[in-house]
Every structure is written in C-alpha cells, then in structure tokens.
Amino acid sequence: MERKSTAKTVVLLLFITCVIGLRLIAPLSSDFALFANFSGIGAVAIFSGAYFKNRFAGYLLPMLVLLLSDLSLGIIMGSSYAFYKGWYFTYIALALMVGVGQLMIKKVTVSNVFVASLAAVFVHWIVSDFGVWIGFDTYPNTLAGFWACLVAAIPFELRFLYGTLVYSGLMFTAFEALKVKFPSLTYKTSAV
C-alpha cells in the first residue's frame, strides 16, 4: 500500500515540476511580456487542492514551488521582480486558491475544474491586487483607488486566467488519463 501512495506522490510532483519549469523558462524569451502572467501556478494550486489528501502537503507544495520560482526569477530578473511591496498577498492568494481546489473539486469533471479555475483566478485578482494597492503609492487608498487598481490589472489577470485554464486542462486531463492506465494512482487512502 505504501508503494501506491509513493507512486501517486511522484506523479503529482512530476506534473507540478513540469508546469513550474515553464514559469522559469519564460523570462528567457524575447517576448517575456506576453508570457509574464501566462503561468501554471494557479493550476498547480487547484490541482494540489483537488488531489492531495494530506491538506498540509496540498498547501505546502504550491507555496514552496512559488517561493522557489520567485527566488529563481529574482536571480534572473532582479530581486524587486520577485519580492515587490505587498508580495505576501500573492502567497495568501495562492493558499486561498488551494482552498478553492479542495472545496470545489470533490470529483474531477470539466465543469468543476473550469468553475474552480474561474473562482481561483478571481480570488487571486482581488487578493493579490489588494497587496499592490496598499503596497504602492500608485493608487489612492480609497475604494475608487482599489477599483482603479483592479481595472489596471485586468490584462494581467486575463493572461493568468488563460494560463490557469490551459494548465489545469492539461494537468487534470493527463492525470485522470494516467489513473485509468495505472489504477494504483486512484488509491483513495494514500498519504498524499
């Protein structure tokens, strides 16, 4: 039984590692601005929330992945790129996104993954841009200022939504296909 649990954990980690690897490669592109928010981190959060039965691992892994990728991006692009004022709100948003995956994806279906992706990106938009709003002097500290911050973030959040939908589709479809081929991955009482 331990072997089945380990196999599932390894497969989940491989999926997450592949998606996050793409986040680290994006800054090397000459068209980085186009890919900056087309990220798989939202999909990783939802995926972890849906599949990890160990809630601690479900939250810890996406946070660790975001931290490591931020550190890497900080080295590649400069420290202010990864750890700007209010950066911790992005981590709070990610934790809430894992919660969305846990609450909304009890059974993996196209509609459940789609709606969870929309909800998770909405949470990310509100929470992470709250950090931008209070962390910088760009917008006044009024409700209108927060609204202006949210409106300015729409192009970035749309790319984040597209990335979350694409990567969620790939990750969930591939893992469900693997579960059919390798029934040991469906072991219900695993440690992950």
Rank of each mutant, 00 (worst) to 15 (best):
V110C: 13
T138P: 03
F136T: 15
V151M: 15
S79Q: 13
T142P: 04
D137M: 03
W87K: 01
N112W: 07
P140Y: 13
G131T: 06
T142K: 04
Y81P: 06
A95E: 01
Y88S: 07
G145I: 02
G86A: 06
G131E: 07
L143F: 12
Q102P: 00
A120I: 01
L103T: 11
G86N: 07
P62H: 00
V121L: 03
L71E: 00
V108E: 05
G86K: 08
T138C: 04
A95S: 08
F146D: 09
L73C: 05
V132L: 13
G145M: 08
F130K: 04
L118A: 05
S111E: 12
Y91I: 00
V113F: 08
V65R: 01
F136Y: 14
S79G: 06
Q102M: 14
Y139H: 12
I92G: 02
V132S: 13
W147I: 15
L73Q: 13
A93W: 05
V132Y: 11
S79V: 09
T109S: 15
W147D: 10
V132P: 09
S79F: 10
D129F: 09
G145N: 09
D129M: 07
Q102S: 00
H124S: 12
A144P: 03
S79N: 14
N141V: 07
G145V: 06
L94E: 10
A120L: 00
W125H: 14
W147V: 15
W125P: 04
L96Y: 04
W125Y: 15
T109Q: 04
H124R: 13
W133G: 09
K85A: 14
I126L: 15
A116N: 00
S117A: 12
A153G: 12
F130Y: 14
F136N: 11
G131P: 12
V108I: 06
Q102L: 10
P140R: 09
T90C: 02
F89Q: 10
A116H: 00
L73W: 06
Y91K: 03
W133R: 11
S117D: 06
